[in-house]
């Protein structure tokens, strides 16, 4: 669905993203993983044209991003930043209604959508009249997600959406993200530098280093069939816990059974 072809972004002489190509399928949940400075954010932002590539092309459904004005493109792409990106002078309801209003939805439809989304992200209906400073970090991030989903965009981009949250809250929100029915059908690209998070949230992972793509594939592929030493090295630190996360329980039983059979 999203096709990135030979995309490069240079800052002065430095390559933030270096001749990178990848395909992202409809409904794929991709985790962009990599060390700090590897180019994850830069790549993500080129997809909604917050950053323009130095060269290369990006298409969505075969259509080059640059064929329509950037602001129209962005209305079809949900974007979740870290915490504190809500508009402080807008209520929760007004925050969520931003894109529907830009798209000139009628009031009733928008209001109904706000009600629906508050329910989906597990916030009490009464919160619609609160201001962002009256919300906890976790609640803020739920609103943030609701805001990104408001106009039903087919694509959702997220840049370290959980990084500003404490551990317990983060777990709860991740859980919400995983369970949310609405998200299942969407194409999602999520940036993270947390390996655990990438394996937990992504049904595929793209590992970046110095602006280049090291490997893109299913979590288990990266783990068991690393494309090169660099991938192996990157994942080495948390191999065991990742292995457990990436491997379905039946497979483990199977594996244990095999061992037992061999022994007897």
């Amino acid at each position: 669905m999203i096709s990135i072809q030979q995309v490069t972004k240079m800052y002065g002489p430095k390559f933030a993203v270096d001749q990178l190509s990848m395909e992202i399928a409809q409904g794929e949940h991709l985790a962009l993983l990599g060390a700090s400075g590897s180019g994850k954010t830069t790549l993500l932002r080129m997809i909604n044209r917050l950053i323009e590539p130095t060269c290369g092309t990006i298409t969505i459904n075969g259509e080059d991003l640059t064929t329509q004005p950037a602001h129209l493109l962005r209305r079809d792409i949900g974007f979740v930043l870290q915490a504190n990106s809500l508009f402080p002078h807008y209520t929760v309801e007004e925050n969520i209604s931003v894109v529907p209003n830009l798209l000139k939805w009628d009031q009733q439809k928008t209001q109904a959508r706000v009600t629906e989304l508050l329910d989906k992200v597990h916030l009490p209906a009464a919160y619609r009249n609160r201001y962002p400073h009256q919300l906890s970090g976790g609640e803020g991030q739920r609103v943030n997600l609701a805001r990104a989903l408001a106009a039903n965009p087919p694509v959702l981009l997220m840049d370290e959406p959980f990084s500003a949250l404490d551990n317990i809250t983060r777990t709860a929100i991740r859980q919400l993200f995983k369970e949310l029915e609405e998200l299942k059908s969407k194409t999602i690209i999520m940036v993270t530098h947390d390996v655990q998070e990438a394996f937990e949230m992504g049904d595929s992972i793209a590992l970046l280093q110095n602006g280049k793509l090291l490997q893109k594939g299913k979590p288990a592929d990266l783990l068991y069939h690393p494309a090169n030493e660099a991938v192996k090295e990157f994942l080495a630190g948390s191999y065991l816990s990742l292995a457990l996360a990436a491997t379905p329980a039946e497979e483990i039983w199977q594996w244990l059974a095999d061992k037992n059979n061999k022994r007897s």
């Binding site: 909604n48 917050l50 962005r74 974007f79 930043l81 504190n84 809500l86 931003v98 894109v99 830009l102």
Partner: peptide
């Protein structure tokens, strides 16, 4: 104004003017 807030506005698809 918080950089994130301005960026969010752009990312939502607001024009410069809006």
């Amino acid at each position: 104004i918080d950089h994130n807030v301005k960026e969010a506005a752009t990312a939502m698809g607001m024009t410069e003017h809006t």
